[in-house]
Simulated scan of single mutants.
Amino acid sequence: MVNIYTEWDTLREVIVANCYNISRINVDLSFKYFFHENLKDEFIKNSIDLQKRIVEQRQEDLDNFSSFLISQNIKVHRPEKLKEVKEFNTPNFSDWTCPVINPRDQVIVYGDEILETSCIWRMRYFENDLMKSIFRSYFLQGAKWSSSPRPIMNDESYDFDFKKNLEEIETGSFDKYEIMFDGAQCLKFGKDILMNVSNRNHYLGYIWLKQHLSGKANVHPVCLTDHHIDGMLMPLAPGVLLINSSSMEQQLNKLPEKLRKWKCIKVPAPHGHKSDADTTYLASQNINVNILSLSEKEVVTFNEDGNPDHALAELLAKNGFKVHTARLRHSRLFGGGLHCSTLDMVRDGEGRSFF
């Protein structure tokens, strides 16, 4: 039975990504929206080609990580493989189907509910269909299963006016913008959910989520980054945060007052090694904050170039955590570390208040 209230309670069941059958990424308006802060001039072209070797290495690491989780007595689900990349058309846009590379992006699992969120990136419009059989199984076991409004996604739907504070976002007209937000903009703290909001699409998503979870959870909007919050900070246990030291440390004052009192462990600066396979980076250099907790005392770190991240592992061990290290190559290219490439379905714990 689905049960998720935090990012750190003991993990029992999880979905792990697949990246079968992806060889090219279409660079369209929605791509530029999704990767707003990480977009560089070198990316402004019609598409990004992915070497077959890179995709195979990523898949190998995902498979090995699945085997590791199974060895820890955690039940692992995998999305269906994308058997064939197909072009699709809606009345407003065309794109190509893609596999479930980062299952956490478009789903929020909270309490006993699976909540599919409103797609931001057009290519991913039908991506969640590859997880429908998993969700159906949980639904038949008694889980609730909902979706936020599916957007039209025409060019006028997008608010490219990204802001640095909530006050600016709340003002102005919302008439032409749609509800568009990702599950990965949210972190769960028991009765409270921290949600990153940086434009009017997100703010509409915040209003919708707040209404949908009314009486179950308090949703706290913060403006920390362009989209996903789990590249900025990760709660590891009650009272303990892992933070991206390069961009989060100066923004701690934006967090809810009680959360500002939590202990902050700063992720060490990356060691600087660059994989020769990765010529395009679609995520921050500080993606190593994106770790997965197995419990409030046990975590899994990773390194995108295949070398163990000894500095972070040693720092976490000094702070009382049991640390495992996984290989997850090309994480910046695929836009996600261990947290992004998994989706918790069952953890122990109840909806307690930690704020």
Rank of each mutant, 00 (worst) to 15 (best):
G239E: 12
L82A: 05
K191P: 01
E249Y: 10
E42I: 12
E156I: 08
K266C: 12
S147P: 10
F354L: 15
L294M: 12
E7A: 12
Q72T: 04
L242C: 08
I4A: 04
K164Q: 13
A311C: 05
K52T: 13
I44S: 02
N18E: 13
I22C: 12
P91R: 07
G183K: 02
D159E: 06
I4H: 07
N165T: 12
L241A: 03
L316T: 01
K266T: 08
R347I: 04
L194E: 05
E80P: 02
N102V: 11
N21F: 00
K52W: 05
Y110H: 03
D61H: 10
H310D: 14
F43L: 15
K263W: 00
N64E: 14
V267C: 08
D112F: 02
I44M: 15
P149E: 03
E13N: 03
T280W: 03
V289F: 08
G349A: 00
L241F: 14
F355P: 01
F65S: 02
Q185G: 03
W145M: 14
Q250M: 06
V267S: 08
I265Q: 01
V2E: 00
R150G: 01
P268D: 01
F189L: 15
Q251N: 11
F35V: 09
E167V: 13
C264H: 09
T325S: 14
S353M: 05
F35M: 09
F135W: 10
C186T: 15
K52R: 14
L187K: 09
I134D: 00
Y33L: 13
G272H: 07
I25R: 14
A277R: 14
L252A: 05
L282P: 13
C264Y: 06
E296Y: 10
L62G: 09
M345V: 09
S214C: 11
L338F: 05
H212G: 00
E116R: 12
A17T: 04
W262C: 06
Y20H: 15
F162S: 07
N18G: 09
F135M: 09
F35T: 08
F31M: 07
V76D: 08
F35K: 04
E37W: 07
S275K: 06
L194R: 00
H324T: 07
L166P: 02
G183A: 03
L242Y: 03
E304A: 06
G335C: 02
N199S: 01
E168A: 15
H212M: 09
S67M: 06
N288T: 10
K81Y: 03
T90W: 00
R332Q: 14
I120C: 14
S66T: 01
K266Y: 08
E298M: 11
G111E: 00
Y158R: 03
D95N: 15
S284W: 03
G239Y: 09
T171N: 04
I287R: 10
D161I: 08
L82Y: 04
V14H: 10
S47A: 13
N288H: 15
S331T: 04
M248N: 04
M234C: 12
H310G: 00
N46E: 15
S147V: 07
P221F: 11
Q51C: 08
A311K: 09
Y281L: 11
K86M: 13
K261W: 08
R124S: 01
I265K: 04
L294N: 08
A277V: 09
Y110P: 00
